[in-house]
Design a protein around this nucleic acid. Structure first.
Lengths: 182, 182
DNA sequence: TATTGTTATACTCTATAACTATA
DNA sequence: TATAGTTATAGAGTATAACAATA
């Protein structure tokens, strides 16, 4: 019995998968960090969009998104044009150069996986992909900012409590679990 | 047809899962960053071990492991004792306080998943866990240092080429894909 | 006044390289 | 000479807060 609950085991395995992600990052060219590649992939998949939507798809704060986008725009991989319907917004669109780069990156990643995952059945690969997709969808928008945005739709101010906070205490009643801080 | 190959799609979904990992990190107490939690989890799962083994399990360089371990030792969650068989090594062991903290963290993570993944069937959860475990195992040790360690078993020096390098070119023959660098 | 996006700052995580101590 | 581990430094990724421009 490796874990008390399957949820704990899932947390462990998700943490371990970070190693695979780093392996994937390592095949990227120096001029295209992982953040840039993620932006390109989403613009390719979902088409042109605004910053806020991209931030939501990336699952990160818009401030971070802004910096990632600045990089890919500097490289000429993404075009940033004003939104005709809202002067505050800007429309992001993949350029031809960006699409070419993304294609090349996709081939690289495919090569790597084809080598490492040679004996995987197609069904298992498909199952993993669809389970990961579902996990991401069901887990929801887990950005730090997401809570605030949610509350903003309801009321202007006040105590925010969108998602139930973890009620599990960190320390057992009998004895302190930490030392250095106490 | 979202992706040319399932491998590209897998890469995308792995990238997206980072959002779930960040959501998990967010429930950790300030005195226990994700790196510390990962160390505790592995020591709990596999028992006492040396630094090098821990680095291998974490899938990161030993220098990083060393710093993570220093943190959990400072907090009193891990004990670092000399290896009786090798004066260079040190044995790492979870303390009672460390185990308590880890239990509490596990409950927190389980609470979070139980809430977000309420309508998942047990079988799907189990399938995802085992597929992730297999992915991590088959992808192999993807640390940057791993290539060098591998070559060290064969010969003392010379050109290293353990894993086949990606042969896929980044640019198409007809036209340059990058701008800013050229 | 609220929203979109950018910038400044700080923190975590990781890798590389230089170093110490032991085998 | 090779290995185990530590430390210093640098770079990527993210969050928070302050800010500018527009709705």
């Amino acid at each position: 019995m490796p874990a008390r609950s399957p949820y704990e085991e899932l947390a462990r395995q998700l943490s371990a998968v970070g190693a695979v992600k780093r392996g994937l990052t390592r095949i990227l060219p120096p001029e295209c960090p992982a953040g840039s590649a993620a932006v390109l992939a989403l613009l390719d998949r979902y088409g042109e969009m605004r910053m806020s939507r991209l931030a939501e798809l990336l699952g990160i704060d818009m401030s971070v998104t802004s910096r990632h986008v600045a990089q890919v725009v500097d490289r000429g991989w993404v075009e940033r044009s004003p939104d005709p319907y809202d002067g505050r917004s800007r429309i992001l669109r993949l350029t031809a150069a960006g699409r070419e780069l993304l294609d090349a990156l996709g081939r690289r990643a495919a090569d790597l996986f084809a080598e490492r995952l040679a004996d995987w059945a197609d069904e298992d690969l498909g199952r993993l992909i669809s389970l990961l997709t579902r996990l991401r969808a069901d887990f929801g928008d887990c950005r730090a900012t997401a809570r605030l945005q949610e509350s903003a739709r309801v009321g202007p101010a006040g105590p925010v409590q969108t998602a139930r906070e973890p009620t599990t205490p960190l320390t057992a009643p009998e004895e302190p679990a930490r030392r250095a801080t106490g």
